[in-house]
């Protein structure tokens, strides 16, 4: 296997893992609140909308954002680098 390709793939792996860990952390901080601090989530932040709804929305939005970043990075950087390497070969 070509050296550049190896480097690119290991970078790809690193980014996949890093983003997975971020998703994991976000999700489990939410679960931590659910499991141990349900009282906080029951409080209202605005009118009758409570913190639980707000937190769920934040978790979902952040996950979508991270997926978006991953897809954008892959499609606009990784694939292009991959093509360059394949052309050289």
């Amino acid at each position: 296997m070509n050296e550049d390709l190896k480097k690119l793939n290991s970078l790809h792996k690193k980014i996949s893992f890093m983003l997975s860990i971020i998703v994991f952390l976000i999700y489990f901080s939410f679960i931590y609140l659910v499991a141990f601090d349900i009282g906080f989530l029951s409080n209202n932040f605005l009118f009758n909308l409570n913190n639980g709804l707000l937190c769920s929305l934040i978790v979902i939005t952040l996950c979508l954002l991270i997926t978006g970043i991953y897809v954008w990075w892959n499609n606009s950087f990784y694939e292009i680098e991959l093509k360059k390497i394949k052309k050289i070969e």
């Binding site: 996949s16 893992f17 983003l19 997975s20 998703v23 994991f24 999700y27 939410f30 659910v34 349900i38 989530l41 639980g52 709804l53 769920s56 978790v59 979902i60 996950c63 991270i66 997926t67 991953y70």
Partner: peptide, 21 residues
């Protein structure tokens, strides 16, 4: 009540993990 949302959030978060890993 909340258990429904709990499942929903879990199912959504499962997708990026599946895609990445």
């Amino acid at each position: 009540g909340f258990d429904g949302l709990f499942y929903a959030v879990g199912w959504i978060v499962g997708w990026p993990i599946m895609l990445f890993l």
